[in-house]
């Protein structure tokens, strides 16, 4: 008796691209196409009804996008693994999809064999990410970890150091040979970035976030 084939629902709003995907899945001995949809609402309805092993979803679709369908599947605890494909793999999108519970994220330029292999792997409970997507994910994780620390230009760091020394705006202007108006403008930007309203709070926040020792 042959092993059971993994059931798959495909959703993509572009009929030509979707046809290519469904044809490729139809040729696979280990996958069975059980439904298809041209928008996010229809996709979610089909997935709720058929409870496939895997949903292969385009990210950009009318109605609900792929990420929203993924969120609904996760929230409703449906037994369906999600593989997302996108023509446009923005880093934070990759992060949101994986953080939201997707088993895989692929660029739409991926070969159909690779897409079908990834769908089959998702049906087995595996998570697969191509190298370029891994890189994007790592960058996003690092970016999110670093985003708590305000980023200052070298000039702003200089000005910050001088207010920590207790220098007044005119003193700073003289030392840096800048106009007082320019220093004032640097100070305002510094306050904006640190989310403070005065010099003492700027120094305190800078020390707390590691910008000053």
């Amino acid at each position: 008796m042959p092993p059971a084939r993994a059931t798959v629902v495909v959703a993509d709003d572009h009929p030509v691209y979707r046809e290519g995907l469904t044809r490729a899945i139809g040729h696979r001995a280990d996958l069975e196409l059980v439904g298809e949809a041209a928008d996010g609402h229809a996709a979610l309805e089909t997935i709720r009804e058929l409870r496939p092993a895997v949903a292969l979803l385009d990210v950009k679709m009318p109605g609900l996008d792929g990420l929203q369908v993924l969120q609904a599947i996760t929230r409703d605890e449906l037994p369906t693994a999600v593989v997302l494909v996108s023509a446009h793999a923005a880093e934070d999108l990759v992060y949101q999809c994986i953080a939201g519970g997707a088993s895989a994220f692929l660029g739409k330029q991926a070969d159909r064999d690779e897409i079908c292999d990834t769908v089959a792997a998702a049906a087995r409970g595996e998570v697969r990410l191509p190298p370029e997507v891994q890189g994007q994910l790592v960058r996003q994780i690092q970016l999110r970890a670093a985003s708590d620390t305000p980023r200052l230009t070298s000039r702003e760091r200089e000005v910050l150091g001088m207010i920590a020394e207790g220098l007044s705006a005119p003193d700073i202007a003289e030392r840096l040979t800048l106009s007082p108006a320019t220093v004032k403008s640097h100070l305002q930007t510094l306050y904006d970035k640190l989310g403070v309203n005065d010099r003492a709070a700027a120094v305190a926040t800078a020390m707390r976030t590691g910008l000053l020792e």
Partner: peptide
């Protein structure tokens, strides 16, 4: 911002 899911933050960084 061609993707509804892409945030303005990500678009600015990009």
């Amino acid at each position: 911002v061609t993707l509804a899911s892409t945030s303005i933050h990500s678009a600015i960084h990009a």
